[in-house]
Amino acid sequence: MIDDELAVAVEAEIRQATATEVMPRWRQLAEHEVESKSGDHDLVTVADRLAEKALTASLSRLLPGSVVVGEEAVHADPDSYRALQGERPVWIVDPVDGTRQFVRGEEGFCTLVALAQRGELLASWTYQPTADAMATARLRGGALLNGEPLVAGSPEGERPWRVALSHPDFTTDAQKRALLGLRADGVDPRPCGSAGLEYLNIARGDLEGVAFSWEHAWDHAAGLLLVAEAGGAHATLDGTPFRVTGGNALPFTAGRDATVVRRILDLLGGQR
């Protein structure tokens, strides 16, 4: 389904949508162009909506018969999320991942696109426009950053493992207790930024792991495939792989290798 021609075409459409709808509004947003959805931590801008609209049109055209599950479309029509459980190929789109950072005029945001079918991730694209960094992955085809191979590797030396954690507003009381387990010797936890960029940090070996308590496919699909194809691993709280179709045991983790994932799961489970 994913050949070189399609992969290149998807990358071009992501770059075009970002250049047209996102970057001209970076550090230029008017007050009326920013709204909150479920709370002050959950923002949407005109850039999110227009970029998703552009990608929905272009990606559907590139792969006839496919459907799009986008963050903003699902917010408007929650039933559209069910497409992930169907038979048709599904583009999973987060037009601006890290909207809070985007609104603040920071550089830590990206555009995420993944292609899945019957719950299996086939390809992904993670684009940070402020750094012109394009990370791509294909199932059993490896991971690349601007055309160069990405290898997550394993933690080295005696330094604490750096782990990015869910924002507290996204966690239940039980999940907060589980995440407290990562305040342990040998672990250096910090709040997460853009989920897509945290996965990229793992794939390039700059971060040991993440522990997230929400499962929206648009936040995780692209990054989980990127980490896996860079040699990393991921698992949910009950030890099973994360499923983009939902129903996961939370929190879940991804890390540079299986050892990191097992250790994080042990620490999370010890607080239940």
Rank of each mutant, 00 (worst) to 15 (best):
L145W: 08
N146F: 09
D132I: 04
G153R: 09
A114C: 07
A143W: 03
A137G: 09
E107A: 14
E107H: 12
L179D: 00
W161C: 01
V151T: 05
Q128F: 04
L180K: 12
A152N: 07
R138G: 14
L144H: 12
K176T: 13
R140D: 15
A116F: 04
L145T: 02
E120Q: 15
T136W: 04
L180N: 13
L122H: 12
E107Y: 13
V113E: 01
E148C: 09
E120F: 05
A152H: 04
A143I: 09
T111P: 03
L122N: 02
R138W: 09
R118H: 13
T126S: 13
R118K: 14
R118A: 14
H167S: 04
A135L: 11
G119Q: 07
L150S: 01
G153T: 08
C110T: 14
V103N: 08
R118N: 09
W125R: 04
A164T: 11
R162M: 11
T130F: 02
L139G: 03
L112G: 10
T171S: 14
M134R: 04
A114Y: 10
G142S: 06
W161D: 01
Q175D: 11
D173F: 03
G119K: 06
W125I: 11
R140P: 00
A137S: 12
L115F: 07
F170C: 13
A131M: 11
E158G: 00
G147E: 07
G108R: 15
G157E: 03
R138P: 02
L139V: 06
G141L: 06
T171Q: 14
Q175H: 10
T130L: 15
A123D: 05
E158T: 11
R159F: 04
C110W: 03
R104M: 12
H167T: 00
L139C: 13
D132P: 07
S154P: 04
E148D: 14
L122W: 07
T130W: 02
G105S: 07
L150H: 03
Q175M: 13
A135S: 13
A178E: 10
W125L: 12
G119N: 02
L150C: 09
F102N: 08
G119H: 08
A131C: 06
N146T: 12
A116L: 00
A116S: 13
R104L: 14
R177C: 00
S124G: 15
Q128K: 13
G157F: 02
R162F: 05
T126E: 10
P155L: 02
W125S: 02
L180T: 09
A131H: 10
G153N: 07
A174D: 15
S166D: 10
L145Y: 07
T111G: 04
L165G: 05
T126W: 00
E106I: 02
P129L: 08
S166K: 01
S154F: 11
E120T: 14
V113R: 06
G157T: 09
A174L: 14
A174P: 04
Q128N: 15
L179K: 02
T172H: 08
E107D: 14
E107K: 13
R177P: 03
P155M: 07
G119A: 05
L179V: 01
R159K: 11
L121W: 10
E120S: 15
L122A: 01
W125F: 10
N146V: 09
S154D: 12
P168Q: 05
L180Q: 15
T126L: 15
